[in-house]
Simulated assay, not measured.
Amino acid sequence: MLATAGALPPAGVEDRWAFEVKQDGQRAMVYLPGDGSLLVRARSGTDITAAYPELLPLADALGPRSPVLDGEIVALDEQGHSDFERLQQRMGLVSAPAKAARMAARVPAHLMLFDLVHLDGRLLTKLPYAERRALLEGLGLAGPAWSTPAAITGHGAEAWAMAREAGLEGLIAKRLTSRYEPGARSKSWVKIKVHRVADVVIGGWVPGRGRLTGLPGAVLVGEPLDGLLHYAGSVGTGWSQTERTRLAELLQNAAIDACPFAQVPPVAGARWVLPQLVGEVRYTSRTRAGRLRHPSWHRLRLDIPLDDLTG
């Protein structure tokens, strides 16, 4: 079951929803037959058990009980937040169990459990979320590499504010009465992302294709530091057609031959511009290299002089 992007439920009905922290990892279904074995499948259905050897002790956690669990495999950063960039080092090691074991010591994975779809021969998908959640919590699944993070009923605005303050990716709101819909992207699960805002300087752009021919498909942005413009990523969404056309004119007028970034970004077909246009972008988080994750254009900031960014 997949979530639909959206906004917080209105305050008047938020007591009909539960709120969970949105994890940034690899979705997994976990099968415990009750015979001491364990099977972990990715969202695609691929068997990924061998990639995460630290999860193997989970096979004995419930004795003869046989649940099918839904969750997210994550790698945690120093603040205990899920970090997809860290997890990428663990993914794709199914055919290399020796390397997976070595990486488990360096970058441990953790399974965050949030739903229960089958238990002891009983299919639970028709039960409401609140009942499935109670059954899941009743299993008491908490171990060295797995846990059942809390879900808060109601208080959505407070939960979102806490997620934002803690630097988390966002929330998943789940309707208490909702059934589990296998394979469906349901409006009964809503993902609410916490977007951050940054002021950036445009240093280049990449021409669009198809209906965007002659217009910027994406702009390359950076942030000034110590007199240099440091590349922060590529932004390719968030414009209306009118805004994109206006930006194309500004970029054409600012064209230069040399790359203005401290290091040339690894972007094919890039065109460079004088770093004088300031924009505001929304993003979810940053990589360890400082790049913006999931950036989208918000607005051109003609009201901000470049000197305000450079100090």
Rank of each mutant, 00 (worst) to 15 (best):
L2P: 00
A5R: 14
A7C: 00
L8C: 06
G12D: 15
D15M: 04
W17T: 08
F19W: 00
D24P: 03
A28L: 08
M29Q: 15
M29V: 14
P33Y: 11
G34Q: 05
D35N: 12
G36C: 03
L38M: 05
R41D: 04
A42M: 03
R43M: 04
T46G: 05
T49D: 11
P53N: 01
E54C: 07
D60H: 12
D60L: 10
A61H: 14
A61W: 13
A61E: 13
R65Y: 05
S66Y: 04
P67Y: 07
P67D: 06
V68A: 14
L69K: 06
G71F: 00
A75H: 03
D77I: 03
Q79K: 14
S82M: 10
Q88P: 07
G92N: 12
V94Q: 13
A96E: 14
K99L: 15
A100R: 11
A101S: 09
A104M: 02
R106E: 15
V107C: 09
A109N: 06
L111V: 10
L111R: 03
M112D: 12
D115Y: 09
D120T: 01
D120M: 00
L124P: 04
L124M: 07
Y129L: 15
R132T: 08
A134H: 09
L136P: 01
L136C: 03
G138H: 01
G140Y: 01
A142S: 14
G143R: 08
P144V: 02
W146C: 10
T148G: 06
P149S: 06
P149H: 02
A150F: 03
A150C: 05
G154Q: 03
G156S: 05
E158W: 06
A159I: 03
W160E: 08
R164P: 01
E165V: 03
G167H: 01
T177A: 14
R179L: 11
Y180G: 08
E181N: 10
P182M: 10
G183Y: 03
K187C: 04
K187W: 06
W189R: 12
V190W: 11
K191F: 01
K191V: 09
K193E: 04
V194S: 13
R196F: 10
D199Q: 12
G203M: 11
G204D: 04
R209D: 12
L212D: 15
G214N: 08
G214P: 07
L215P: 07
G217L: 10
V221I: 13
G222E: 02
G227A: 10
Y231S: 01
V235C: 08
T237H: 13
W239E: 10
W239P: 12
W239H: 12
Q241R: 13
T245H: 11
E249F: 04
N253F: 01
N253Q: 13
A255T: 15
A255Y: 05
P260W: 07
Q263F: 11
V264T: 15
V264Y: 00
P265C: 07
G269E: 09
L274S: 12
L277D: 03
G279R: 02
E280C: 00
V281K: 00
V281W: 00
Y283V: 04
R286C: 06
R286V: 02
R288M: 09
G290Y: 04
L292N: 02
P295F: 00
S296H: 11
R299Q: 13
L302Y: 00
L302D: 10
